[in-house]
Write a protein that binds this DNA or RNA. Structure first.
Lengths: 132, 132
DNA sequence: TTCGTTGCAAACATTTTGCAGTTTC
DNA sequence: GAAACTGCAAAATGTTTGCAACGAA
């Protein structure tokens, strides 16, 4: 099996981890997840591969939340909501950036991507606050 | 003059610096600008005041470009273009996020802000590349 | 006297890098 | 053997904090 070639085991694991979650993880989170299966994995490997994936467009960056970069294995354009209280990042699949908007950007340069992000307080954090 | 009270001179200078530029500066950039007028200013003061302004909504964060946070003294909602080559951040005043979009987000929590960002390569960098 | 602001240096957290060891071709 | 991937530890980076000094009320 090519996919399990020892050479790429960790790289594949990192990509798979990103693709199979919707928490928009940080490097640290991915590292923690993979430690179970790959007890000898190093954080540097996670960072190196995240950088590589990003370069190749296999993953995207959602932004920096509370000082740490957050990634998304879903590269299809979609909208995000970032809770500034707990730092969670949620997908808003029901919304899309109208194509006309993107088109009207030409003239400033070569546009490679477009990212719409809402920030606020998620329902969970609002409830916590009320209960407290 | 209240505005020039020694107590707030540097804080005012920092805010004024942000309000009177469209480069979407980093903390370091603001610091460098202010050194001319305030030779004894410290980077910590810049960071402290930027955090304060952000908290109070007097400035906003545009995002993190090449590892450093970039600020904007213009808090009116507007769209940005980030050049991933040179790291410059440009305003796209001609575009606006349709209100309907924002409205349809309710349900996920309390939305405080919304930010649309395009990334790509600015014309200047494209030209540099071609000439090279 | 009490409070808020600052400079300085130290601390901090995240991310990147150098190097040696290993695997694949 | 050459090239690619990795772990480890060290380094680099951007940002925050503790503290003493100062200024304003």
């Amino acid at each position: 099996m090519e996919a399990t070639a020892k050479r790429f085991r960790k790289r594949n694991a990192i990509l798979h981890c990103l693709r199979s979650t919707d928490v928009h993880p940080s490097a640290e989170w991915v590292y923690e997840q993979l430690k179970a299966e790959h007890s000898d994995i190093s954080l540097a490997t996670v960072y190196r591969n995240l950088a590589r994936f990003k370069e190749r467009g296999e993953i995207i960056t959602v932004g920096t939340v509370h000082g740490t970069e957050r990634f998304d294995g879903n590269t299809k354009p979609h909208v995000h909501f970032i809770c500034t209280a707990c730092g969670s990042v949620l997908d808003l699949h029901q919304i899309a950036v109208p194509e006309e908007l993107t088109k009207s950007v030409s003239g400033i340069g070569q546009v490679n991507s477009c990212h719409l992000t809402f920030t606020g307080i998620c329902n969970e954090c609002i409830n916590k606050e009320e209960t407290a």
